[in-house]
Design a protein around this nucleic acid. Sequence first.
DNA 1: CTTCATGTCGCCCTCTGCTGGTTTGCG
DNA 2: ACGCAAACCAGCAGAGGGCGACATGAAG
Length: 296
Amino acid sequence: TFTTLSISSLKHHLKTHSDEKRHVCHLCLKAFRTATLLHNHVNVHTRTRPYKRSDCDTAFVTSGELSRHRHYKHTLEKRFRCSLCKYSCVEASKMKRRTRSHTGERPSACDLCSYASKDAYKLKRHMVTHSGEKPYECYVCHAKFTQSGTVKIRMLQKHGENVPKYQCPHCSIFIAQKSDLRIHLRNLHSHMAVAIKCSYCEAVFHERSAFIQHKKTHRNEKRFKCDQCSYACMQEQRLIVHKQTHTGEKPFTSLCCNKSFQREQLLSLHFRKHHDSNIKPTAYECSKCGKGYSLW
DNA sequence: CTTCATGTCGCCCTCTGCTGGTTTGCG
DNA sequence: ACGCAAACCAGCAGAGGGCGACATGAAG
């Protein structure tokens, strides 16, 4: 529904409905409706870029390209605004793409799996997961990768100097990747609704990192304490043996002379001192469980 | 007819962030 | 020596910027 007040304008408009393309490119035989379109096309072949900007060293084949460049890089004018969010952009096609992320529409479907993307490029990128192709190579160590971004990060972290690291604001540790710092924060510094209780004392913690720090304070502590005297030690087994001094229990008995000992080592010493060194390995047994012991 | 602004489709790029397997260091 | 947790690392997808090429429409 084209309307105009001028006859010549109508005539011009009618030509746009015509399939007639009289202007043929002598380099590739492609045909165009107008001489200007052909002219622009030939400029592509000849790499002639008449539309220039003096201040940023860029040049384009058409005025449209220059105009758009101006919006992107100089005026920063974003005429298209999303009605659903605060996103704005220079081009209508970008707005269309943005709208798809609101609607969830995924028109580009993979014919090898269930994946579908919002735009053609993502589908193309996805297809390398089926081909197994790794088109990006590290020029230092020649390791290959599926995406350009991955090789860039690899280059920086393996071969770069002054590699950026991400520091945790809570414990000052440096972590190589931002997303790993996020995981670190989540696992170690986030508040837990259910507190962890220290198994050595009464302390409780809502943050894992604080709990780990606290545990270290128990590391060299003599936390196994005798309830009958002031004796304390770091190992539970030692406390059990110690307690025998209070009970008078002597579980290790020599079968040779019937003499009993509190500890295996004492029985062992007794054997070496008083009995034949050729004695058989199961020469004594525990009075509690009946287990036989070999000492040498 | 030409020029210019604007529109449209498509391509490629980078940045970003999540995921899950692997390696490493510590208790 | 072993097991576990944390960091490392590559794969992969989401989102958005910028431009190539060409079409359309208004105005001179």
